[in-house]
Design a protein around this nucleic acid. Structure first.
Lengths: 164, 164
DNA sequence: TCCGTTCGGTTAACACGTCAACCAGCCGGT
DNA sequence: ACCGGCTGGTTGACGTGTTAACCGAACGGA
C-alpha cells in the first residue's frame, strides 16, 4: 500500500489541528479542575442535567446527549453521586431504569463554573478569531463530523467482513 | 459575574469544534488500535523514535517532542517495553539518564501503521476540505496554540481581563 | 402463555493520565 | 571538598475510559 503522503500545506493543517486539539482540551480541563474542582466530563454532565426539565433525566437519555458508552456513564455517575453532585433513583415506569437528578450542590457548582468556562472559551478561541474564521471553523467541523458519522454508518468501507 | 454569552455564530463554531475534536480523536484511536494494536500515544512515540538518528533518544528529549509529563512518559515506556516495542538502557554519559530505542518489532509496527494512518487522515479530513479551508484551519490552530502558549507563560492566568 | 431477544444498567479487569513523593546523580557556590 | 539545589527518572495512589460479561426487566412473537 503506497499511501499518498501529505504535502506541505496538508501536513501543516493536520499538525496544527492536532496541536490545537491537545492544548485546547488540556487547558479547558485544567481550568475547570483548578477553579471549580470539576472535570470537563463532570461539567458536561451537569450542564445537560441542569437544562433538563426538573433537572432530571433517564440515564440512557443522558448517555445519548453525551455520546458516552453506558458503562462509562454508569461509572462516572457513581463517582458524581459519591461527591453529592447527582442523585440516582429507580424509575417508576420502567423497573430497569435509573433517573438521574442534579442536586442543589451540583446546581451551585455548575452555576459558578459556567461563566468562568465561558470566559475561558472566549479568551482562548472566540475572541481571537474573525467572523469569517469562526464561520469556516464551524463548516469544517461539520464536514468532518458528517464524514465520520457516515463512516460509522458504513463500516463496510473499512471492514470488508461486515455483513449488512 | 455576568459573562457575555456566546451568540449564535460563536456557539455554533464552539460546538462544532468540540464535536469534531471528540469524534476525530475517537476515530483515530479506534482505527489504530483495531488494525495495528497501537494507541495513538504508541504511534506518536514510535514515530518520533523512528525519525531519530539510530532510532534512539534520551527519555527527556522524547518527552519534549511529545509534550508529555515525565511520569506519563515513564509509565508508557514501561508498558511499551513489556510489549517489546522499545528498549531502555542506561545512558553512558549521564548516570541518571535512560536511552530509549525503537526495536525491530517497533519499526515493523510503525511501518505498517503509518500508511493506514495517513489514509485515515486523508479520508476523514484532508480530502474533504478545500485548499482555502486547509489554510484557514492551520491559521486558526496556530492562533489558538499561540494564545494558549502565551497564557501558560503568563502568571496572570487568573486575570481574564488581560487583552493581548 | 412461554421463550428468545432486546434493552437499561452495573460490575470487574485492564490500559491510561495526573499528581505528589521520592531517589540518585549532576552542578554551582563557597 | 562540601552542601544545597536542580535534573532525569521511577513509583504509588487515584480518577478515568474501554471491553466484556452479566443481570433483571421489558418486549414480541409463536
Amino acid at each position: 500500500m503506497a499511501a499518498r503522503w501529505l504535502d506541505q500545506r496538508e501536513e501543516r493543517a493536520w499538525r496544527s489541528l492536532m496541536k490545537m486539539q491537545d492544548s485546547l482540551s488540556e487547558f479547558i480541563e485544567r481550568q475547570l479542575r483548578n477553579r471549580c474542582g470539576l472535570s470537563h466530563a463532570d461539567y458536561q454532565t451537569l450542564a445537560h442535567l441542569s437544562e433538563a426539565p426538573d433537572g432530571r433525566l433517564r440515564s440512557f437519555e443522558l448517555g445519548a446527549l453525551l455520546h458516552w458508552e453506558k458503562s462509562r456513564l454508569s461509572q462516572h455517575l457513581g463517582r458524581m453521586q459519591n461527591r453529592g453532585l447527582v442523585s440516582r433513583t429507580r424509575c417508576l415506569t420502567d423497573q430497569r431504569g435509573a433517573v438521574i437528578a442534579i442536586t442543589p450542590e451540583g446546581r451551585d457548582l455548575i452555576a459558578a463554573a459556567a461563566p468562568q468556562h465561558l470566559t475561558d472559551v472566549r479568551d482562548v478561541l472566540i475572541d481571537h478569531l474573525t467572523a469569517t474564521e469562526l464561520e469556516m471553523l464551524a463548516t469544517i467541523g461539520d464536514k468532518v463530523h458528517e464524514r465520520l458519522a457516515a463512516l460509522q454508518r458504513e463500516p463496510s468501507i473499512h471492514d470488508p467482513t461486515a455483513t449488512t
